[in-house]
Deep mutational scan, measured.
Amino acid sequence: MKGKVVSYLAAKKYGFIQGDDGESYFLHFSELLDKKDEGKLVKGSMVHFDPTPTPKGLAAKAISLPLE
């Protein structure tokens, strides 16, 4: 699924993505496929991810940034 980063707290390594389906997904650095892309996780960045339901809500897994 595609989505847009709505927040990312680099110090805490987490944030949120708004998916194309309108839902909010929890984003964690550990799910970023290329850790070098962390600096690109800023508000408004477009990402691809696997939407995954968890006991705490919806989460983004296997997060990647589109090729530039």
Rank of each mutant, 00 (worst) to 15 (best):
A62N: 15
D37Y: 07
P66Q: 14
K43T: 10
K13C: 08
P55M: 09
M46T: 14
E68S: 12
Y14M: 06
F26S: 03
K61R: 12
D20W: 08
G44L: 04
F29K: 06
M1A: 07
I63H: 01
L9H: 14
G39K: 14
S7R: 13
P53Y: 13
V6E: 07
D20M: 10
P51L: 05
K40P: 02
K12I: 06
Y25M: 00
K61M: 10
D37A: 09
G57T: 03
G44Y: 05
L27R: 00
G19W: 03
L41C: 03
A10F: 13
Y8A: 03
A11E: 11
Y8P: 00
V5D: 01
P51D: 02
Y25E: 00
P55Y: 09
E31T: 04
G15E: 02
S7W: 15
S64Q: 09
E38R: 05
A60E: 01
G39F: 13
K61F: 09
D21E: 03
K4I: 14
P66S: 15
S24G: 06
H28Q: 07
S7V: 15
S45G: 08
P66G: 14
P66A: 15
V6F: 07
V47G: 01
S7N: 11
A10S: 12
V47C: 03
S64I: 11
A11Q: 11
L32I: 06
Y25C: 02
P51N: 04
D34C: 11
F29Y: 15
I17E: 00
G57C: 04
K36Q: 11
V42H: 12
G39Q: 13
E38V: 10
M1T: 06
K12H: 09
I63K: 01
S45R: 15
E68R: 10
E31W: 07
Y14A: 04
G19Y: 02
K13T: 03
F16W: 14
V6I: 14
G39P: 14
F29C: 07
A11G: 10
L32G: 01
P51V: 09
F26K: 03
E31D: 10
P66E: 14
I17D: 00
P53L: 14
G19K: 00
T52A: 13
E38D: 04
K56P: 03
A60R: 00
D34L: 06
L58T: 04
P53I: 14
L9V: 14
K36W: 08
F29E: 04
Y25I: 02
L67V: 13
T54Y: 06
H48A: 12
K35P: 14
P66K: 12
G57H: 03
E31I: 03
Y8K: 02
